[in-house]
Write a protein that binds this DNA or RNA. Sequence first.
DNA 1: CAAATTTTTGTGTTCGTACACAGAAATTTA
DNA 2: TAAATTTCTGTGTACGAACACAAAAATTTG
Lengths: 365, 365
Amino acid sequence: MKITNDPVVRIKDIALKAGVSVGTVDRVLHNRGNVSVKKHDKVMKALQEMHYEPNLMARALVSSKKHIIAALVPDAHVDSYWLEPQQGIAKAAKDLKQYGIRVTEYIFDPSDKQSFIDNANALTKNKPDGILVSPIFYHESLAFFEKWKKMNIPFVLFNTQIAEYDPLSYIGQDSYQSGLLAGKLIHYGQHKPCTVLIAHIDEDISNSAHLQKKEKGFRNYFFQNNLDGQFNIISVQLNRANTAAFIKPLDEIIEDHPDLASIFVTTCKAYEVAKYLEQRHIEHPSVIGYDLIPPNLYFLEKGRISFLINQNARAQGYWGIYQLTEHLVFKRKVEEIKYLPLDIVTKENINYFIDKDKPAVLGLP
Amino acid sequence: MKITNDPVVRIKDIALKAGVSVGTVDRVLHNRGNVSVKKHDKVMKALQEMHYEPNLMARALVSSKKHIIAALVPDAHVDSYWLEPQQGIAKAAKDLKQYGIRVTEYIFDPSDKQSFIDNANALTKNKPDGILVSPIFYHESLAFFEKWKKMNIPFVLFNTQIAEYDPLSYIGQDSYQSGLLAGKLIHYGQHKPCTVLIAHIDEDISNSAHLQKKEKGFRNYFFQNNLDGQFNIISVQLNRANTAAFIKPLDEIIEDHPDLASIFVTTCKAYEVAKYLEQRHIEHPSVIGYDLIPPNLYFLEKGRISFLINQNARAQGYWGIYQLTEHLVFKRKVEEIKYLPLDIVTKENINYFIDKDKPAVLGLP
DNA sequence: CAAATTTTTGTGTTCGTACACAGAAATTTA
DNA sequence: TAAATTTCTGTGTACGAACACAAAAATTTG
């Protein structure tokens, strides 16, 4: 039998041990100054010896002042991908309400820079206590980062990383690594030489660092493992807006490459490829894609999509708000970069990844 | 711009609205009785209308009485598998200390029923406020469940499920599902007819419901997908204690089945098979196993093990303590069964799964 | 109908921390 | 050296919920 814990130490205990009042300990703890060197040292010594750890509940209770967090996120009507982060944000807002967190969402059109600017301006005018933003427009974002920096408003980025003006934290997906992972999955499923297609759907690669990183990671998997000779990797950019730009290129690729064994879809639109294959009664190529959105799940269940890589977009939104809360309410240090797990999801383990209404007790791991 | 939250409602607000004192509201909230029907109704009405949700911080703060949780877990020296749950328990103990939780561990020898009984007796004598137990001995466990039930001590099971005497919660691995998943992974990697080996290492199948469920799930994958014809599935029980009982059967199987394509190891001992294959310079069979323990990670990194299925044993320990805390401290309803995710781990995404000082993200998606 | 008893209701204190404010000690100024 | 100022220190209150206890109202008893 072993006991895992030592007793709880309160500020009062520290004060007693150091021979000072709780007020003095408090001043030391928060570097508020106005403490004589002598007592400061005494308190520090007591703190070291007793391993003081603040009671987060009491702390949260007393500083129950309201913190307003502004979330600047793309409109899910334009690209349904953004539904997930938004759900995460909403969940976090609900869970963290009791800590005095209020979340205000500013929704911009991801296809319209001006919409981003307008919303960012509106947000800035309201002077929130913290900002969560998906800075998909690089240059436009920088200007606001500078403003927020000057206004001393902490901001957290998610989905897209921009290192300048050091944000409080970046919550992200590791696109390169996910490309590597997709490569592994496809390689594992294919032993004979064959053709593999990388399909970028509905997004302009040149404008998307993500897609580039995914493609690079994917290609590098085969390169690093000296598989270039066996696998003929081709890539294509498709656009659903225009049937000709979607169906036709696919038709041609299928015709030109009878040995096409797998298709790696770099966006959340794997279901479009699955649908296409089904309609054309093409059985052989396996499909790997991203994100647990309903149409993808449908084809995963059917077996038409083999794997989905879950980048935990929901969790990105959740963690963004969570990190800001840690900073604003509990004044804790937060990780500068937080990559969320890359889950490999199949028909057989899907049920662990949907729903996930996990509770939040702050302070928890 | 949309605001995600409504204002926080306190007991005081309810009392004001209902025209009573906070004491009365408190009595209604906790069914303490001694409230006139008239006022009771008024309070109920106010509660309904204002969507009261208790402030968990304040609640935990006021009832900051110590809760002692006893954890009855197998000795990791006998089977290193138990290291993971123990780490999870230790982490939870640390995180939840501030909520007044003290964890006492009782370590028993998993190969010795009497050791289980002795420790369980010692534990019971100390009358903890909650119990976390891995009831690997069925009959011996039942007797204690009955005692604890009578003593009104909530207990949570992990790792092994026993439904009688309804525990507060069961935290578990879904062994059947993980077998299915392993089947899928092997099938995905093998297109030609071949032989597949199920290896149970260092455990007696007949005594382990887990291993049986894993094998059943695995076989059913192939059965349900009408793949019986193509895949010749054989199984073997190996024991490292005796070299003859380990090396020899493997040698024979390899010789008898030149088309052996994959080996599914149902325990955490996949590294033993990987080591064997390496020493014999046998390249072709892919290996799939369980658990992220160092020797397995070594062979995963080398490529000798293709996939590891992570049953999140660490998280099992963590959640066990967590669920008891939810019940004891926050008085929240806890899920009766909590299956932890089955993660598919490869060389390419391993870094998200090790370390995990994961909050279990508590609360997270 | 008053006294005794029971039921119902309200008030006050507690938890650990943060912060405001008052009071004490040390320092500077005249 | 006294007064004014600055630096330092301790005390008191608030946060929201829980619970003990006191007070008030309703009921029973004599």
